[in-house]
Design a protein around this nucleic acid. Sequence first.
RNA 1: CGGGGUAUAGCGUAGUCCGGUUAGCGCGCCUGCUUUGGGAGCAGGAGGUCGCAGGUUCAAAUCCUGCUACCCCGACCA
Length: 490
Amino acid sequence: MAKNFPTRKENYSQWYNDLVIKADLAENSAVRGCMVIKPYGFAIWEKMQAALDKMFKDTGHQNAYFPIFIPKSFFNKEASHVKGFAKECAVVTHYRLKTSEDGKEIVVDEDAKLEEELIIRPTSETIIWDTYKNWIQSYRDLPILVNQWANVVRWEMRTRLFLRTTEFLWQEGHTAHETKKEAVEETEKILNIYTDFAEKWMAVPVLKGTKSPNERFAGAVETYCIEALMQDGKALQAGTSHFLGQNFAKAFDVKFLTKENKLEYVWATSWGVSTRLMGALIMAHSDDNGLVLPPKLAPIQVVIIPIYKKKEQLDLISVKANQIKKALEQKGISVKYDDRDTHKPGWKFSEYEFKGVPIRLVIGPRDLENETIEVARRDTLEKEVLQITDIENKIENLLKQIQSNLFQKALSFREDNTFIIDTWDEFKERIEKGGFILAHWDGTAETEQKIKDETKATIRTIPIENLNEEGKCIYTGKHSKQRVIFARAY
RNA sequence: CGGGGUAUAGCGUAGUCCGGUUAGCGCGCCUGCUUUGGGAGCAGGAGGUCGCAGGUUCAAAUCCUGCUACCCCGACCA
């Protein structure tokens, strides 16, 4: 265990913060609320990007890039959209600096004031729909299936590394379709991609559903989401996919001629996941010994550490270690052989354990004699000594086992922390302890707001795979069509 | 924006109340030797505008005034 590293039980949020910093994932920057993503953290993000990017492309999407700046007037066009983002926008008002009169400092040149202010994008719907207007005239131009990898800025009051930062990285998909049906299908297709990614790559089980009107994206007709449960019992929204109806098409006047020569508004979707997924990944699996990474997203899947007394011994071990490294790499496994002489083995053990490397192989003089190797897995912290014969297949299987074990562990945690609650008293008591609560709700925004005010719990999602069970609202006792998921959220 | 707090080496801190030698300690860093199967030991060494600006004083990390930044709680937040 790292020195002075708090346990989850002692102080969960301190644990999270220290973990992010001490595992070299990210740190706070000189700019308030903005983080520096360090190489190790960024390597994980790149693996996420690569997997998602392939999934998008396999389903017919293409990448493009739109400007970071959006003319202020664009935000006037979709009323609810501007309302949702206005309070957190950074605004560019000038385009030049100059040396002050006394020559001592650099100041804003007031003569260089912009005619129209530019907003640093908090999301790109407006500039993209302004652009799509020029791309779309006929049904033959549809659909447009575009994604962009970008940074966005939302001026949040309080920030936390990866979970909520002023600037963050994400992908945003923006699609345009002929029909409502096709757009809804697209929205759901992406939701399924996000679900697959969360569960199969991140090993994080998620609930799929829609948002209540209160929590809906500004400008959307329907917001779909995936919600994950963190180890402290709080929910984390891991991805959203919005059916935008014809709202943006109408706001930006994007019409097309149908086969029947009729002029119609385009149907739209938008969808995104961000570096917040890093937060979900970290919080879902890690333990009091540090980070735990699922093999599919670990920048280093296997680390090999030599034990030796003399240089000659190291040379012999290195021959063997490099053979193993090569055999593993031929299986597509990423391996680091750490033969640095500047750190002792014990130090390295702790280091890689803290950084969540799924498998550690240790090879020393004893192993050379016996043709063996010590294999330690990060998820269970178990160690065993194996024969080197066929080691690449053994490791390949073990990585698969670790991947599925992490998912199973997270899934049983969620199951153990999901509760069906039918009385308001039980609800208030349970919400203090965390977890997902399945409860009935009368469907009104007022009730949702009152529950939030009294308990800080929000409706995380209205599950798609619903129980179709009618009942009475936990708060008002009025009729309810189905149970929804309540939780306190990040 | 409201309430509370903090600012001393890369990091964590002592000293501040009650002004007085060369600002101390731990981790980390550098050099050498011994070590290496779970964060090594010994010896030596480098590193400080004490957040910024001004004031009081023979003398300021310490007292006074102003400013700035950051942290916590609330509000805010898809």
